[in-house]
């Protein structure tokens, strides 16, 4: 009987796909250990949202509504998670490999004297000792990691496990973290681009590279994203040139993403780019060079000029959406 604690992140009170995927993962882990899947929720979230966690197999929720959890502070958040883990006697603590999850998981591991495995991509192959697979060398290889300690902390790579619904009700318990430290840094300013679909949460990503030739040619890229309900991304030189905002840069030195569908338009497919997108389920490449390495990473390819092919894809996507 070993419990699984997971941090259910929310955005302004609603759970997004990564949190529900993590709930599914925690539930599957709990079935292997015979314990409970327990969610920790930090900050204000309504009852209707909390109940959603139950439909992904969560049995118990610790809801710390009161406390200065916004902004995310490594000290405050890791204390809250570690205290919760002790309270529910969690053997495993799991996070999404999100900005927050990656930031606090190592501190929680230190507090709990637990081994840390970052970016796992599935369920453990053994629970005793805990043995689990993760990507290494920027996605060029897989490694099997064994944890020597009794407790373990893991972060789950997004979109590797998927959503798995299960019937059930979660019991929510209002909880106050006993000893929260104060904020470690003074916040001077916060800016958020409201309502925009986040690259980290998007199922479909439309990304374009230097083959577009200049920022003024991005209209069809954005149109394709709009029709498909996708987020936009770009290669590094595109953001370096200032054609697109830095937040869109994907790859080894940018964001690492794993959507269901990734469009690479006028992107050569350098290893450092592929390192950020190779976990995508399906990759579509449009390039005028048949030798472009991106075709080696892609599932579907179109050999042609982005300036004619992308507008044609926009029209075809519209037709597809109308008929489905």
């Amino acid at each position: 009987m070993s419990n699984i604690l997971y941090l259910a992140e929310h955005r302004e009170g609603s759970f997004r796909k990564p949190a529900l995927e993590l709930a599914s993962y925690a539930h599957a882990l709990a079935r292997q250990t015979g314990g409970q899947a327990i969610a920790l929720v930090l900050g204000k979230v309504g009852a209707d949202q909390l109940s959603r966690l139950g439909s992904y197999g969560t049995q118990h929720i610790l809801h710390a509504a009161e406390g200065s959890f916004d902004p995310m502070d490594n000290g405050i958040w890791s204390t809250a998670v570690a205290e919760a883990a002790i309270k529910v006697s969690a053997r495993l603590v799991v996070f999404s490999a999100s900005l927050q999850g990656r930031a606090i998981a190592p501190a929680v591991a230190v507090r709990l004297e637990a081994g840390l495995v970052a970016g796992v991509n599935g369920l453990p192959s053994s629970m005793q000792p805990l043995t689990v697979e993760r990507k290494v060398y920027s996605g060029k290889a897989l490694a099997t990691v064994v944890v020597h300690t009794e407790k373990a902390v893991m972060t789950l790579s997004p979109n590797t496990f998927g959503l798995k619904e299960s019937s059930g009700d979660a019991v929510a318990e209002v909880w106050t973290v006993p000893t929260l430290p104060s904020l470690s840094f003074e916040v001077l300013e916060t800016s958020r681009s409201e309502g925009k679909l986040l690259l980290s949460e998007a199922d479909v990503v439309v990304s374009a590279g230097r083959g577009m030739k200049g920022h003024e040619h991005w209209k069809p890229v954005e149109d394709l994203a709009t029709v498909l309900g996708a987020a936009t991304a770009c290669s590094r030189p595109v953001s370096d040139e200032g054609w697109r905002p830095h937040g869109e840069h994907v790859g080894q030195t940018g964001k690492i993403i794993a959507p269901n569908l990734y469009f690479a338009l006028g992107i050569s497919g350098a290893v450092q780019h592929i390192a950020g997108v190779s976990s995508s389920k399906v990759i579509v490449a449009v390039n005028k060079d048949p030798e472009a390495p991106i075709f080696g990473a892609a599932d579907y390819g179109i050999l042609g000029d982005v300036h004619t092919v992308v507008p044609a894809l926009v029209e075809a996507a519209k037709r597809f959406k109308e008929n489905s």
Binding site: A143, T144, V147, H148, G296, D299, Y300, I302, L303, V309
Partner: peptide, 25 residues
């Protein structure tokens, strides 16, 4: 606290299926 037990290389991708640029649908 942890050890790397073994490494492996990911399954190579199947070949890329080409679609005619004249047939975007």
């Amino acid at each position: 606290r942890t050890a790397y037990q073994a490494f492996s290389l990911p399954q190579p991708k199947g070949s890329c299926r080409m679609v005619d640029p004249e047939q975007p649908d």
